[in-house]
Design a binder for these strands. Structure first.
Length: 421
RNA sequence: CUGUUUGAUGGAAUC
């Protein structure tokens, strides 16, 4: 059975949408005694292939085969259906379970899975409707807050605030600090700082206690508007309210200082962070590497990069990319290319951002042909789909090098490429 | 030897 499961995993992963593989999987089932894992993998495979009926049927089959589904089984099914864009099917299935009173298979977690799946796939109207039509169900704040967040991230702030009102009127679902944090973060992202601050004041007056997440959103928002001094004041307010700043809070302020060109304060705050006993994580390190690169202090950036490991942070694609960018800006493309190899050797795969920076770096160093080759290889291997940044970089390079025919050809390819997307 | 759901909110790279 375990061999069978291993094989099945390979098939399922190898080709997610292939009927043939699913058929093969069915055959495999005949050859061994399927267990819970076998069924779970098949369940997901059918969901991914868009075969909702078969997936649902599989749950029945499990019972017949004497494999008792666990709570996780319908969760996988609901999540899988949502991922396949079948949120409506998912809800129907949930209601079918409720109708059959399979209480062991329906609980608060089940609702969470469904709502989460809907929000993740942008089915926000369905999620709202589900909340609205669930007066007979036992819902909680977290479920509502998830939808509030979904609406916020989709830019539907008005509706998010409407939902906030609905929460206030529903027993057991009264908004809490997480709900307010969600809304304040959204206002901050939209640059509506003054409304965020007004909301902060309102909830404090109400007796709700802002936490480190609240302050981090506000600090980040203020920094993005270059209101650094206010950001600093809120950092202090957070501390005076006994909220302990974590790596995220420090990083937000460090990033703000860096973006405002106040590198001296970046150094100072980072030292303070360490003295404070706060452990920097990979994001903090990449923020600092980037800050030093941007301020032209590549030595400090490299130093920070090299100290990452001993700080217990594994360099990730973002740090490598920031550093590669730093060297490209200094026209040291060869060092950048060396880092590119170094990262791959260390099991860190470059992503589209990395590739864009390399292409741009090669172009700006007058190595347009190399950039073009690199770009072509990207297209060939198909590992990464170029985006507008990629095209802009290579176009600019070709034009500046006077290779207008080549640029024109690329431009036509590009229009075709975009039409396909 | 394989896979997965994992209850909500904040920070980093191509500007």
């Amino acid at each position: 059975t375990s061999t069978c499961n291993a094989l099945l995993a390979v098939f399922v992963r190898g080709n997610r949408h292939s009927e043939g593989h699913l058929l093969l999987s069915d055959k495999l089932l005949g050859l061994c005694k399927p267990d819970l894992n076998t069924y779970h993998m098949l369940l997901m495979a059918y969901c991914r292939a868009g075969e909702a009926d078969k997936a649902v049927g599989l749950l029945e089959e499990m019972n017949a085969a004497g494999v008792e589904p666990v709570l996780e089984s319908p969760h996988l099914l609901l999540d899988g259906l949502c991922s396949a864009g079948q949120a409506v099917e998912a809800r129907k299935h949930l209601e079918e379970l409720e109708r059959r009173q399979q209480q062991q298979h329906v609980g608060g977690d089940t609702y969470i899975v469904l709502i989460r799946g809907m929000c993740r796939t942008g089915k926000l109207d369905e999620a709202k409707q589900f909340l609205r039509e669930s007066s007979h169900r036992q819902l909680n704040v977290a479920m509502y807050t998830m939808v509030v967040d979904g609406l916020c991230k989709a830019g539907r702030l008005e509706e998010a605030f409407d939902l906030l009102e609905a929460m206030a009127n529903r027993e057991g679902c009264e908004p809490n600090v997480v709900t307010y944090n969600t809304l304040m973060a959204a206002l901050c992202r939209a640059g509506r700082l003054d409304e965020a601050l007004a909301l902060l004041k309102e909830i404090v007056d109400k007796g709700c206690c802002p936490d480190v997440v609240t302050y981090t959103s506000i600090i980040d928002g203020l920094c993005r508007l270059k209101r650094i001094d206010e950001a600093h004041r809120f950092f202090e307010e957070m501390v005076s309210r006994q909220q302990v700043p974590d790596a995220v809070a420090y990083t937000a302020l460090i990033n703000g200082l860096s973006k405002a060109g106040r590198v001296g304060e970046v150094h100072r705050l980072f030292r303070y962070m360490l003295l404070d006993g706060c452990i920097p994580d990979a994001v903090t390190c990449s923020t600092l590497v980037n800050a030093f690169c941007k301020s032209g202090n590549i030595e400090a950036a490299v130093d920070m990069f090299e100290k990452m490991e001993e700080r217990g942070c594994k360099p990730n694609v973002v740090v490598y990319t920031a550093l590669i960018h730093g060297f490209c800006k200094l026209k040291k493309v060869d060092v950048a290319l060396g880092l590119l190899q170094h990262m791959s050797r260390n099991g860190c795969a470059p992503n589209l951002v990395t590739h864009n920076i390399v292409v741009d770096g090669l172009c700006k160093c007058g190595r347009v042909q190399d950039a073009y080759d690199y770009f072509s290889r990207l297209l060939e291997t198909g590992n990464c789909r170029p985006d507008t940044y990629t095209f802009n970089a290579i176009m600019e390079g070709l034009c500046k090098a006077g290779e207008l025919d080549e640029a024109r050809r690329l431009f036509e390819d590009m229009t075709r490429f975009c039409a396909r997307n």
